[in-house]
């Protein structure tokens, strides 16, 4: 490593004071501020912040994009010019943006039960507000939450986490500084079945190290899952409570 900053010091602390396996603070906001979206989520992992709006299932805008047996899932990613330390405007056709949206699409394809909504369209708009490493992980987690809020049927949550390896010691939830220096993997897991929806690497990683950090990322995904579940539960409770207290109609023909 040629970096002047110590990634992991002798005391076992990382540059931002975390331990090897410690995750950054997760902040989740599921209540939209004046957005007409069907589902909404803002999620931050430390200083990485992503906001996602989900619209649909709704009538497809273009007839050419409809499928007769399933919904068309359309994902658009935008990266704010002010999101990174170096101001940079990325257009719609930017390679990086297209890559992220394509990755998101392939991650969520097996999870969204799109066959329940033939000829419709589900639009997912991802907006990156701040970047400090783990961009893809934040995008995936925020999208899961927004989809769950929109009432779109999912087979499971998708929980993603980045992990890397510093010489022989694995690290979890990398910041931008660590991500630039270390070989890293982003893993998206479905916690219930334990299936993995995405594994992606942009760096070279020693094959002997792979299994270790892959497993570790899987474990960390479960921790993130618990946090996400808690946020979804809190929101659902707040939405349902007033309906209960004001008396639900008797279950029967009145109910649907």
């Amino acid at each position: 490593m040629s970096s002047r900053i110590e990634i992991l010091n002798a005391g076992g602390y990382r540059s931002d004071g975390r331990r090897q396996y410690e995750l950054r603070t997760i902040n989740i906001d599921l209540f939209p501020q004046g957005s007409a979206a069907d589902g909404f989520a803002t999620l931050s992992h430390g200083l990485t912040q992503v906001s996602v709006c989900v619209f649909g299932p709704r009538e497809a805008k273009l007839r050419s994009q409809t499928f007769h047996d399933r919904a068309n899932v359309n994902i658009e990613v935008g990266i704010a010019a002010f999101s990174s330390s170096e101001r940079r405007r990325r257009g719609r056709g930017d390679k990086r943006i297209l890559e992220i949206s394509q990755t998101l699409k392939s991650t969520f394809d097996p999870v969204i039960q799109s066959s329940l909504y033939p000829r419709s369209q589900i639009d997912i708009y991802v907006q990156v507000l701040q970047q400090d490493g783990g961009l893809l992980q934040a995008c995936i987690n925020a999208t899961t939450l927004a989809l769950a809020n929109a009432g779109i049927p999912l087979t499971d949550f998708v929980c993603a986490v980045t992990s890397g390896v510093h010489s022989t010691s694995p690290l979890l939830d990398l910041t931008l500084l660590e991500e630039n220096d270390l070989p890293n993997v982003t893993v998206a897991v479905m916690p219930r079945s334990g299936k993995v929806s995405l594994v992606t690497m942009e760096t070279r990683l020693h094959v002997d190290r792979f299994e270790e950090i892959f497993r570790l990322a899987g474990e960390a995904g479960k921790i993130i899952h618990a946090e996400m579940k808690k946020a979804v539960k809190d929101r659902t409770e707040r939405l349902v409570a007033p309906m209960q207290s004001l008396g639900r109609p008797a279950t029967g023909e009145n109910d649907y």
């Binding site: 709704r58 769950a148 929109a150 939405l239």
Partner: peptide, 22 residues
């Protein structure tokens, strides 16, 4: 369950009504 919401049961039929949906 595949959606976020309230679990409902009618005899042997289990359904989940979404808290927010179209």
């Amino acid at each position: 369950a595949s959606v976020t919401g309230i679990v409902e049961r009618v005899n042997k039929l289990i359904t989940v009504r979404a808290a927010r949906t179209r």
